[in-house]
């Protein structure tokens, strides 16, 4: 091995190591670059300054990932719900398309026969059962629903102690079909 090569190899190596150390070292001295989000605290509306004491300079300007308060994006698929209006009415006709389209058998519709005022027999839902433990949040039920009866909310804290608690009935007690939805 050539002596010049040997020494220049050492110097080059040391230089590359120093460049690497510059990166980590510079982050060490820039605590406002910290991107950690403090989870349960950042759920609150009024984020207290001391939750972020180590990163007191973080105001979300340097990196896109920095956010003080957790922002749930509107389209986030957290949980399937059936929106009800203030008169406790929903749009679900009980047609069963969501049940058919669900790849996992997450949805089960128990329907009843109703007799309307003019004497016609009509299908309506008794229970719209949603088993969240089996849901893969593919969104096919919402997309294929002909009457837009289903939607996703962006709740995401679904931890429960018992798996049966994940089975939910989406239509509320005593709710009826919205007028004008067939």
């Amino acid at each position: 091995m050539n002596v010049v090569e040997y020494i220049s190899g050492i110097l080059k190596g040391v230089k590359s190591l120093l460049i690497g150390m510059k990166v980590t070292g510079s982050y060490f001295f820039r605590p406002w670059k910290i991107v950690t989000q403090q989870y349960p605290e950042n759920r609150k509306k009024d984020v207290k300054w001391f939750y972020f004491l180590p990163l007191w300079k973080a105001h979300g300007k340097d990196t896109p990932a920095e956010r003080k308060q957790i922002v749930m994006l509107e389209r986030f698929k957290g949980e399937l719900i059936m929106p009800h209006n203030e008169k406790n009415e929903h749009k679900c006709t009980g047609c069963g398309i969501c049940e058919m389209n669900c790849p996992n058998g997450t949805i089960e519709i128990i329907s009843i026969q109703l007799t309307t005022e003019d004497g016609k027999k009509k299908r309506a839902i008794d229970k719209h059962i949603y088993r969240m433990g089996m849901c893969t949040f593919c969104g096919l039920c919402v997309k294929t629903c002909p009457s837009d009866a289903l939607a996703f909310t962006n709740t995401f804290e679904h931890a429960v102690f018992n798996r049966t608690k994940l089975n939910k009935v989406l239509n509320k007690e005593g709710s009826t079909l919205m007028k004008g939805v067939e």
């Binding site: 991107v35 994006l73 389209r75």
Partner: peptide, 13 residues
Amino acid sequence: EPILDIFEESTGS
């Protein structure tokens, strides 16, 4: 993280 945020915003996951 920013990429995942972009995904989440448009696709929901």
